[in-house]
Simulated assay, not measured.
Amino acid sequence: MLKMHGFSARRGIDVLINKSLISISGDNHLEMHDLLQEMGQSIVHEQCTHNLGKRSRLWNAKDVYQVLKNRMGTTKLQAIHSDISTIPELQLNPDTFKNMHNLRLLKFSAQPNVDNKMHLPEGLESFPEELRYLYWERYPSESLPSEFSPHNLVELHMPNGKVKKLSHNGQFPNIEAIDLCWCTSLVQVPKSFMKNLDKLTRLELAGCSSLKASPELPRNLRQLDLSSCSQLTEVPDLSRCPNVEEIDLCRCTSLVQLPKSIFKNLDKLFRLQLAKCSSLKVCPELPRNI
C-alpha cells in the first residue's frame, strides 16, 4: 500500500518498525498489535458515520454488504477487505464499482465449505483503473470484465473461482503475481495473455483440473505451481526463464514427459516437486543445485 501511494515500501516499513507500530514475524510477515489496529479502525469509522461509501476503508462484512447492495461507493473509498461468508445473498449490479475511482485494494475472502453468497448475474462492467491488488475468492464470473484497464494491477488472486479462460484485451504491465488455484473450469491460458508480462514472478494454477497445456512463460518468473492439474499433458520449456526458483508439478497424473531442455539455465532452481506424477516416464537430468 505504501508503494501504491508513491512511498518507498522498504523505507516506510523501517520507519513503522522503529516507531514500534509494526513488527516482522519469524516467517517474514508484518504484524500489528490488535489495539493499534482497533484504534486505526476507529479513526476510519469516525470519518463518516452516516455514509459508509465515503469512508476510505471498509472491512466489516455488514458495511461492505450495504455499500455494494445500494451502490454507495464513492471516490473516497480506497480499500475493501472483508470475509463475505457471513453476508446475505447478494446480486451485484454490473456497475457496482463504477464510482469507486480510487479503489486500490479489493479483497473478498471466504470460509471453506460455505456457499458463495455473491453473484454476478449480468456480469461486471469493470473494476476501477486504480486497482493494484485484487483478491476475490470464488469469483463468480467466467472472465475478467472486458472494460477493465488493468495497467496498475500488481497482484491478481481468484482462487476457487469460475474463470474459464484467462484472456483480456488490456495490458498487464505491472502484474507480479497471478493466483487462479482450484479454478476447475479454467481450460486455457492463451499465449497472447502471457505476452509482455515482464514483471510476473509468481504463477499459481494448482488444482486447475481442466487445464491441458501451459503457455510459454515470461522470463522473470520465479515460482510456478501447476500441482494437481490432472489433465495437464505438457509443460513449457523453462530454459528461457533463468530466474525460476520453485516448480511444483505434484499430482499431474496425465503428464508423460518433460521437455529435454526444461532445466537448462535454471541455476537458481532449488525446489522441484514431482510426487505422484504417475504417468511420467521421461525426466531430463536434474540441475546440480537441486
Rank of each mutant, 00 (worst) to 15 (best):
Q41Y: 15
C283E: 02
S20R: 08
L105K: 10
F263T: 05
S8W: 00
A79H: 00
L200S: 11
C250N: 14
I175Q: 00
Q47S: 03
L211M: 04
K260R: 15
T75G: 14
R240H: 13
A110H: 13
S185T: 11
D179V: 08
R132V: 10
S141E: 09
D27F: 11
Y133A: 09
S261L: 14
P159C: 00
S254Q: 03
I178V: 13
R11W: 14
L249C: 04
R104S: 14
N70I: 00
E130S: 15
K62V: 08
Y65A: 04
N116S: 05
Q111P: 05
E31V: 13
E38W: 04
E89F: 14
E216H: 12
T75C: 14
H29F: 11
Q188P: 04
F127N: 01
L211T: 02
E122P: 08
P150A: 09
H5P: 06
Y139G: 08
N99S: 09
L266Y: 08
Q37I: 12
D34E: 13
P112M: 05
P88G: 00
S278G: 10
V15D: 12
G161L: 04
P159R: 03
K191V: 12
L255A: 00
R240Q: 15
E89C: 12
A9R: 15
K107I: 13
L156R: 07
M194L: 07
V15C: 09
K162L: 09
G40R: 10
T253V: 06
I175C: 00
K76C: 15
I13S: 11
Q91C: 03
L224K: 02
E137I: 09
L255C: 00
R10S: 15
V64C: 12
Y135K: 12
K98W: 02
L68T: 07
P128C: 02
S167V: 11
L197Q: 01
L68H: 09
I13R: 14
A177V: 10
R138E: 06
N174G: 08
N169K: 13
V114R: 01
E130Y: 11
G26M: 10
S20V: 11
L205I: 00
S146R: 10
F263A: 00
P94R: 09
A206V: 07
I24K: 12
T253N: 04
N99H: 11
S149L: 11
A110L: 06
A213S: 14
S25V: 01
K191Q: 15
L131H: 03
N265W: 03
S56W: 08
F270W: 07
F270G: 07
Q66S: 12
I24C: 10
M39N: 12
E122I: 05
N265T: 04
F7R: 13
I13Q: 10
E285Q: 13
T96N: 03
L68N: 08
T74V: 04
S146F: 07
N289P: 01
R132W: 14
F127M: 01
Q37F: 14
A9C: 10
E155G: 06
R55N: 01
P259D: 03
V256H: 07
S23L: 03
L105M: 11
I24S: 08
T74W: 05
Q37G: 15
